[in-house]
């Protein structure tokens, strides 16, 4: 009795196109629940989910929490500040403690790549990666795919360019794998200092100039430029970044076709993206946020079901 996704959702690289399609197909009807007066279904009644955030996050955590609550799960949030995590407890001990508390699922955000997999290998509960270091952020990738699929119907042959700090972006990696699996053409654009040196081996086109990317793309997924990157010496200044790589109205106006604009948030307006682009007619940024809840509900729904303890509870219930 395994879920169609396996025990955990750790990344999109290891999923098949069919599995990704199933998640998106499941997410579609779930969007309706958030439109209801009573925004709740009893699906995960009795399931306990821990949102384990070793790294500050507002929107992802809130999105997961909405998804969990709309599926009637009991949720506990553990954030790094003030918890034993900040007191030097190791990930192993955290895992063992969670297991001892008989939880069903863990949503983990951690600043180390591979942390979600590390946890998943050590506990029986389902583990959902909510972002591990600079590795993957699969639910963000999925919500991006859902957003594009809603606009286009199919991603086959569509051109999507991921713009900005690909090197440090887990969103970029999840997007690259997900888009490629669904048949889209993927490009990246940004200063070479913010692209992995082996980017060419990832099956993507590389644009050095944003103008070329705009000319080519059907959609731009504009990544957040962390302010630390300037301090880290990867780029000379945010001002110059905006002038050379910023997605601006003037640049988009020269595009040969309509381009959808995505951004995983939070945005640095005036740095990687200008306000009139973010708020413009081709921006699907708020659709992304809406879709985020539905996609996460779908993942929760699809992963649940191979928990023996919940199965027992279900027999005794209703």
């Amino acid at each position: 009795m395994t879920s169609p996704l396996g025990k955990d959702l750790l990344g999109l690289e290891k999923l098949t196109a069919e599995q990704i399609g199933l998640i998106l197909d499941t997410a579609e009807p779930l969007k309706e629940i958030s439109e209801r007066t009573i925004k709740k279904v009893p699906t995960l009644r009795g399931a306990t989910i821990v949102n384990l955030f070793f790294e500050a996050s507002t929107r992802t955590r809130i999105s997961f929490e909405f998804a969990e609550k709309r599926m009637s799960a009991d949720t506990v949030n553990v954030a790094s500040a003030g918890s034993s995590i900040s007191k030097g407890e190791t990930l192993v001990d955290t895992a063992r403690n969670l297991e001892a508390m008989k939880i069903d699922m863990v949503v983990i955000r951690h600043n180390s790549s591979g942390a979600a997999q590390f946890l998943a290998e050590r506990i029986e509960s389902n583990v959902i990666n909510a972002g591990d270091g600079t590795h993957e952020h699969p639910t963000q990738g999925l919500l991006d795919l859902l957003t594009l699929r809603q606009r286009w119907g199919s991603l086959k042959g569509r051109k999507v360019c991921i713009c900005g700090d690909v090197l440090h972006s887990r969103v970029a990696r999840s997007n690259i794998w997900g888009l490629q699996k669904l048949g889209a053409e993927v490009a990246v654009c940004g200063p070479r200092s913010l692209l992995p040196s082996a980017i060419g081996e990832m099956g993507v086109t590389v644009f050095d100039r944003i103008e070329q990317a705009i000319e080519w793309a059907d959609a731009l997924n504009v990544l957040r430029l962390q302010l630390e990157r300037m301090e880290g010496g990867y780029i000379p200044s945010l001002r110059e970044y905006n002038r050379v790589f910023g997605v601006t109205r003037e640049r988009l106006d020269r595009a040969p076709k309509e381009i959808l604009i995505m951004h995983p948030g939070p945005m640095n307006r005036g740095v990687e993206i200008d306000s009139d682009v973010a708020d413009g007619p081709h921006s699907v940024i708020l659709d992304q946020v809406t879709n985020g809840v539905a996609v996460r509900m779908a993942v929760l729904y699809l992963l649940a079901g191979n928990s023996p303890r919940l199965a027992e509870a279900a027999k005794g219930g209703v």
């Binding site: 690289e13 790549s113 591979g114 591990d132 270091g133 600079t134 590795h135 993957e136 887990r170 990696r173 992995p196 040196s197 082996a198 980017i199 081996e201 990832m202």
Partner: peptide, 15 residues
Amino acid sequence: NEGIVSARLGLRGIP
């Protein structure tokens, strides 16, 4: 090592 594996795994590479 810095290369395709580090790029995929999201681990910082040593060239």
